[in-house]
Design a protein around this nucleic acid. Sequence first.
RNA 1: CGGGGCGUGGCUCAGUCCGGCUAGAGCACUCGGUUCGGGACCGAGAGGUCGAAGGUUCAAAUCCUUUCGCCCCGACCA
Length: 477
Amino acid sequence: MSNEKLTTRSENYSEWYNQVIQRAELADYAPVRGCMVIRPHGWALWENIQQSLDRRFKATGHVNAAFPLLIPKSFLEKEKEHVEGFAPELAVVTIGGGEVLEEPLIVRPTSETIIGYMYAKWIKSYRDLPLLINQWGNVVRWEMRTRLFLRTLEFYWQEGHTAHATEKEAKEETLRMLETYTRFAIDDAAVPVIPGRKSATEKFAGAVHSYSIEAMMGDTKALQSGTSHLLGQNFAKAFEIQYLDENNTQQFCWTTSWGLSTRFIGAIIMTHGDDQGLILPPKLAPIQVVIVPIYKNDEEKSKVMPVVERLRLELSDFRIKVDDRSEVTPGFKFNDWEMRGVPLRLEVGPKDVEKESVMAARRDIPGREGKSILPQEQLRGKIADLLTDIHTSLYERARAFRDAHIFDPKNYDELKQIVQEGWAFSWWCGDPACEAKVKEDTKATTRCIPLDQPARNGKCIVCGKDAHEKVYFSKAY
RNA sequence: CGGGGCGUGGCUCAGUCCGGCUAGAGCACUCGGUUCGGGACCGAGAGGUCGAAGGUUCAAAUCCUUUCGCCCCGACCA
């Protein structure tokens, strides 16, 4: 831990981001370029994300399995668009056990191909469908430029892969999982997201349609925080995933895939963090409540600690920690836990022992404003309420920030201005040429075409032709 | 791959231009004491093949050559 002040977000946003990660001990740089070590505090956060999502996956009928890390190179080549999309960023194993391999192996960048191969083996009949499998794992993509959590050579994620008898079912699944991600982001991470469809140029290599949830970071750039793909029959045809229907006719399956990665940790950092450091949403925070005991001498300590211990037991429903370090002062601990993003801090000192109270400090409201004195009686319920409040206020604050930075440009010149400091929500004719022009002029790309659309039609912000959908343009991570 | 920056105790850096005593500082760490309701203080201590290799020189952190790595900014992407 450094004692120096954190770089502020307005001074240098990306420097702020890097410092928060290191000082909150979420992650550290590994010896290999572009790789990171996820440290215990970061991993604990990821575990909570996993639990939250996994519960939702199970509730919608999915089961977990594990597929191998290494994939025959030829598998990738079976789906044309897929291989073209991923070829530049593949890590390839050419030697094993000291021998040059007959066929090089790919370190999976995603698992559609090997899962497709297995599904072809497993699926025979319409009775085998739908097949709903998820896996938690890691993948490797050889990226040019990397950032902690947002883009690393190796990252952890979950990838769901499903096979269905009909296009309708596959499409329902794709949207169901998009909705699952949306609920997770809003209800558990307090991250406001916009679910929508990706443009053809932004979609997953090999998908018919890609959908994403898009979040606005504290610097107004967009972050794709989860994706769900309708793969149509592309992979089914490439891998011959077929079933016999009720009429004894061979049919190709309709497949989907969907993923959410450790990148989401970046979304949490950049959605909620402030100039004091990390702010974690209560439902996902590895430590929800920290108790800092306060005393001047052994006599005070002997009075304070039994109360602290009693409160710790009483609050054992929460993820709670008592900071009993004797080598640092309470003031240091306050800053330390604020840096680490703990949503709620309780201070217990001699005055509290006397008055049977505790001092509570909310992480989302800095300084004196966020402090309140609570009676020790019925503390558990009060803490639960406070954590709920913190969740709500984090969400509302992030949503207000986002909405204040979304604009509807009146013309193309305005759009060019807007995407420098926010998102533009505009009519778009759907022509990739218009999208490309915006990108060339401004570096902003289409983020998503939201599922919720106005009832009327409009004119494309770029070319002026008829448009029936509105899209978000913005710079993105 | 292009542009920029940087490699010196765990961290942040000074020293490099202009070679020369035993390579420094702050923070962190260890021990002792005083402190403790918003980043405490005093004293003592431990810790470094100066990214690596080669060269020039009586002498290299410093000059030359080569090389490796990392970070930041651009083109590709969750």
